[in-house]
Design a protein around this nucleic acid. Structure first.
Length: 419
RNA sequence: GCUGGAAUCGUCUAGUGGCAAUGACAAGAGACUGUAAAUCUCUCGGCUUCGGCCUUCGUAGGUUCGAGUCCUACUUCCAGCA
């Protein structure tokens, strides 16, 4: 994998560049669509391309039991996930089973440590840290130890285990272009002391991840790459230290190919935390900001040196009726008329086909499953394109030395219209 | 015309003596950030100083401490017989 920085912001952190993988290049900053199970819910590979998506992120945890057949198919880019779906599967008219053949990334399953553990049943709060409490130990579905994470699979109730070695073996069978080291994401409710413990464990897991990854990274006939993941919560000393440690971590002269910026962030802290991390990380390695995509987060992320992003929000919120527009988000429930475009001047497949707020709402609210599925597809494509376009525009603004103005204009319009 | 049965929140529906009254849908509000998420939460007769108060289960009476629930009559609808 190669990464080339084309242009840097005046602050020295933000940059536009190009990542080259075995399955194609990614012009950065870039948003990767989340296709946890190997495909983006309700969207085809062609849909992703029509939305300008350059890369897809899947999840090693969710695909762990299918990793063998994925390897047999030649890796994620050759695997046709929808053919593998069993009873109750999603079959949507017009959606082909074709694999996403472009660049891919897999998450390690580290996020599930939190979502099934300390954060079970909770929202990953971004605005307030008060009132956030961890789930009681006895109720958790995941338990962390030095070895890895024991958990109960929520789908079938069976006990299972994933540690750094298992995660790397799974990810190397899935064969995405970029893998994430197995990490422990802490919740906003965890203390400084616990964050030290989790961060140090994450670093030990990073070394084990790197060692295992090196053994298997060429197994499918092309180079797979590994990112080390930074934790450390909201504390500057932890963030800088872990960035330094991971940046210099090597086994037989081989280090990480890039870095994942992880954690549950308080919105107001995000830019500062990213600055601490990225001031320590090497300039020439790409950085992926894990799990964020709201426009203000992407803008501050890109400004502070994140190169790629992923998030479930655009597609999930689309399914739940939230439609992104340049003048702020709208709740589709409120639009019964037929005449209004989703967003003016939008170039997404849905808007180009002439879908309006009212007509889309009618699909969504009809009791018919086929219509609802069509809604999910159209709405997902719109929101996905919205965030992808944001990253395209950020890149263009950076290359034209116009980022600051672009950011201010975008934010003023997007958040300014709120009553 | 006779004989049965039925009338409850926008719709369907639970309810057989303590009920402002069940559930579903619809409607309204909010949430969602490395997907246990085509999901979740809240509101959904009126008023309220949040303790309550008022008006409600086709209509009108009655029995009862107390009636959506029991009785009588009426209205409408459905079914069967004429």
């Amino acid at each position: 994998m190669k990464f080339r920085v084309e242009k840097r912001l005046e602050n020295g952190l933000g940059r536009a560049g190009v990542i080259e993988t075995a399955h194609g290049e990614i012009k950065t900053p870039a948003f990767m669509a989340v296709g946890t199970n190997g495909y983006v819910r309700f969207l085809s590979a062609q849909d992703l391309e029509d939305c300008g998506v350059q890369a897809m992120l899947s999840n090693g945890y969710h695909l762990r039991r299918r990793s063998g057949q994925i390897a047999a198919a030649g890796g994620l880019a050759e695997w046709q996930p929808r053919d593998q779906e069993v009873a109750g599967s999603i079959r949507i008219d017009g959606l082909s089973a074709e694999a996403w053949q472009g660049p891919t990334l897999t998450d390690s399953g580290g996020f599930q440590v939190m979502s099934l553990g300390s954060g079970l049943g909770k929202v990953v709060a971004m605005d307030r840290v008060d009132e956030v409490k961890n789930t009681a130990h006895k109720e958790r579905l995941a338990r962390v130890s030095e070895k890895g994470v024991d958990f109960i699979d929520p789908f079938d109730g069976q006990p299972d285990f994933v540690g750094p070695e298992e995660s790397m073996q799974i990810q190397c069978r899935i064969g995405a272009d970029i893998h994430m080291a197995f990490d422990e994401l802490t919740s906003l409710a965890d203390t400084y002391e616990y964050n030290i413990e989790a961060m140090e464990r994450t670093e030990r897991w990073a070394r084990r991840s790197l060692a295992e990854h090196i053994k298997h990274r060429d197994d499918l006939g092309y180079r797979q790459n590994l990112y080390g993941v930074l934790q450390g919560g909201r504390w500057e000393d932890l963030r800088r230290k872990t960035a330094q440690n991971l940046a210099k971590m090597q086994i037989d002269g081989i280090g990480f190919d890039g870095f994942g910026l992880g954690g549950a962030f308080l919105k107001e802290d995000l830019g500062e935390i990213l600055r601490w991390c990225n001031e320590e990380l090497p300039l020439k390695k790409p950085r992926h900001l894990l799990g964020l995509s709201h426009p203000d987060d992407v803008l501050i992320g890109a400004e502070m040196g994140a190169d790629t992003f992923d998030c479930v929000a655009p597609t999930r919120e689309a399914r739940h009726g939230k439609i992104y527009t340049r003048d702020g988000d709208i709740n589709l429930r409120k639009f019964t008329g037929a005449g209004e475009f989703l967003d003016r001047d939008c170039d997404c497949p849905t808007c180009r086909a002439g879908w309006t707020r009212g007509s889309l709402r009618a699909l969504w609210r009809s009791g018919e499953i086929e219509k609802k599925q069509k809604y999910y597809r159209l709405a997902s494509a719109h929101n996905l394109r919205f965030i992808v376009r944001l990253t395209e525009e950020i890149r263009k603004a950076m290359l034209q030395d116009d980022f600051k103005r672009y950011k201010e204009n975008f934010l003023a319009r997007y958040y300014g219209g709120c009553e």
